[in-house]
Structures are given as structure tokens and as C-alpha cells.
Design a protein around this nucleic acid. Structure first.
Lengths: 212, 212
DNA sequence: GTCTATAATCTGATAGAC
DNA sequence: GTCTATCAGATTATAGAC
């Protein structure tokens, strides 16, 4: 993937774009998602605000690049966890680890969570391209649940509701703590009992949940 | 509660404050929660922005009045639903109706939900007085769950996580629709099975859930 | 590609006249 | 209690020189 000589300009350009987006994340973590200002952002990368327009068409285009990067981070982060093949051996343990991983991804950067999962910036909507990437994350969840014998589409809606509910309560009401994170084990047990009771060990010698 | 003559000034003042807060809600529903501007708000009530300072010390004081009003609306709205006494006769039906009612309250006004349940305005934190009111809502839930034999504090955390999860998914991913609202019945069944299985009819002649 | 200059407008907040 | 006047900035975005 080393650049041909003629691509050097394009490579530099992409590097600068990445630098801008990276500085935008830092800024937004300090001032809140809505607190992103081009003046301040330009200053952080040693530019006037106006020069940013050489790299992005508008402020929303910067939000979109951030959104896209956030989703890509999520894809990479989730891919690094236990994969669908592990599910067969220990379905409940795998699902718990999966939800745990998602939870950590979200709470590690609340502003990113706000951008990716809540509609809170008035004008902004992700581009079709970025949105398609976000849909891919969901498709992976669907695929995974289907492999466990859960094909009801409502099941994954219930799953995502519980997941985002735990996360948003954690972020809003106990930032930095683990009051809702500790409930992940019970939440998974609850979801599995409702959606896929066949995964539970038979009554009498009931399986101990792996985490709570 | 009719005012004594000497109170007339105070009454007028309260009326104007209420008018301002009401106009603020309208404005915020149009421009987003962060889009509240004093200039525009003043114009809506026929004042210059500066005159608003006769009624509120700061912009945040207006947010706080809105927060307080929102919580009061929630208290009134939830109080108008089935009360704790009804729970004894049909616990699952009552809990379902309760959650349904909460869901409707939240989705009826997403901006209000954002102000009450998410931390999205950078500087703003509700005053101790307003926050105490918000705590009262939670205490009522605790009391109610305790009456059903659910005394584990983690149980109500799980309950609120599921409730807000359903709401936030509905608002973010299917605004105006009912994709997650339809899951309330299953969500309650799932919660009850996990937290209070003694409320379920015995196996074999299993109770039909009241809503899905 | 970055700059200066500037458009055109908005922001929350204060002082003091009336 | 409402006004004018003003502070002391902020905002996104465009035009055009270099």
C-alpha cells in the first residue's frame, strides 16, 4: 500500500484530514459535542479556521468524518473480541463478553457514544456512506444471534435496547463508576431466558452465570 | 389559593416566568435543546433579551426551570396512571401499564427526555432543589417494586436501564414509530422472570402476557 | 493551501436611564 | 421592569491575494 510518487500530495492531504479529526475529538471531549468550533479547532492544528475549508466542506462534514471514524473504531473494537465461532462452545459466556465489550467501548468515550447513538446535534445527520457502515455493525449482531437460534428480528431490538439502556444509565447517572456495568451478567441471563431458553442448562443443575 | 392584594405583583411575576418557560419549550422543540437563545426567546414573549434577566438570573436558570417543570410533569403524568394499590390484583398488568405510561411520556417530547434523562448540555446541572424532585420519582419506583417483593436495589437499576433503553432506541432509531414500544410486554415479562418469578403463574398453565 | 480581510450574524451578560 | 446602549466577544463561511 506504499504510495506511488504521484500520490504523495493525496497522502499528505489525508494525513492532515486525520490530524484535524483527531484534534476535533480532543476538543469535543473538553467542550461537549456541540461545543466544537472551527476557530478553536483550527488553532489546535496550527491553522486559521478558514483553512479548514480546504479539507472539509463544512462543519457537518467534520462531524461526519468523526461519526465514520467512530463506527470504524467500533467495528475494529468488536472484531477484536470473542467471535461468533466461540459462541457455540459457551453461548452465554460469549454473549456476556460481547455485551461487556460493547459497554466498555461506549463508556470509554461518552461523547463518541453521544455522536454515534443519540441524535443530539440539531442539524447533523450522518451521510449515507457513514450510515451504511453503522448498519454493518447491526448486521453482525443479527448474524450472531441467528447462529444461536435467535432469528426473531424483535429479539435483536430487545437486545440493543437493553445494551444501550445499561450504557446510557451508566453515563448519565454514574459516570466513571460501574453501577450498571455490574448488571451485565444479570441482563444477559434475563435476555437469554426470554429469547433463547434452549441455551440454558436444564433446571435442577442450573448453570451459574459467568459474571455479575 | 387566591392572592391577597399585596401578592398581585408576585402573581404577575410568576405568570410571566411561566410564559417565558413555556415559550422556551416551544423554541427548544424547534431548534434543539442547545439552540435556546435569549434574544430569540425574548422576541417570542415580546421582550428584549436583556429584560429576561429580570425574571431569571441566567440562561442556566431557565434550563433549570424547564428541568423542574419537566419533572413535575412526569410526577403528575405518572400519578394519573394505575397506582401501587392496583399492583396487588394484577402485578404484571400494572407494571406493563406503568412502563407503557413512562414510555409515552418520554417519546411524547424527545427534547424533554433529553433534558431530563441525558447529560447533553455542557454547562448545565440541575439545582439541588430540582434534583431532589427528580429523586422523588425514583423513590416512587423503589417503593412500588418493594411492594411487589422486589427489594434488591440492583433490580430497580435493571428496571430503569430497560425502560430508558427502549425509549432511547425508539427516539433515536424510529422517531414517531412504535418499533420498540411494541416490545414493552416482552420486556416486562423478561424483567419479572428475572427479578420476581414468584409473580408468574405456575408452569403448565402459564399466564399470557397482557401486551406485546 | 494558507493567508488576510471581511461579511453577516449571533452569543450571554451588564450599566444605567426612565 | 423594560428599555437603549454596549461590552467583548463568538459563530460559519466566502473572496481573493500570494
Amino acid at each position: 500500500m506504499s504510495p506511488r510518487p504521484g500520490d504523495r500530495r493525496a497522502v499528505r492531504r489525508e494525513a492532515t484530514r486525520a490530524e484535524i479529526v483527531s484534534a476535533a475529538w480532543v476538543l469535543v471531549r473538553e467542550k461537549g459535542l456541540a461545543g466544537l468550533s472551527l476557530r478553536e479547532l483550527g488553532a489546535r492544528v496550527g491553522m486559521r479556521a478558514q483553512s479548514l475549508y480546504s479539507y472539509f466542506d463544512s462543519k457537518d462534514a467534520i462531524y461526519d468524518a468523526m461519526f465514520r471514524q467512530g463506527v470504524e473504531e467500533q467495528l475494529a473494537w468488536m472484531a477484536a473480541g470473542p467471535n461468533a465461532d466461540d459462541d457455540a462452545a459457551d453461548p452465554i459466556g460469549s454473549i456476556t463478553a460481547h455485551l461487556q465489550r460493547f459497554f466498555r467501548f461506549c463508556t470509554a468515550d461518552p461523547v463518541r457514544y453521544q455522536l454515534l447513538f443519540q441524535r443530539t446535534i440539531p442539524g447533523f445527520e450522518p451521510s449515507a456512506e457513514s450510515y451504511a457502515l453503522a448498519v454493518e455493525v447491526l448486521e453482525q449482531l443479527h448474524h450472531r444471534l441467528r447462529a444461536l437460534g435467535i432469528s426473531d428480528p424483535a429479539a435483536s431490538d430487545l437486545f440493543t435496547a437493553v445494551a444501550t439502556g445499561l450504557v446510557s444509565q451508566q453515563i448519565s447517572n454514574d459516570p466513571g463508576g460501574d453501577r450498571w456495568e455490574r448488571l451485565i451478567g444479570r441482563a444477559v441471563h434475563m435476555l437469554v431466558t426470554e429469547l433463547a431458553p434452549h441455551l440454558l442448562a436444564p433446571e435442577g443443575r442450573r448453570q451459574r452465570r459467568s459474571s455479575r
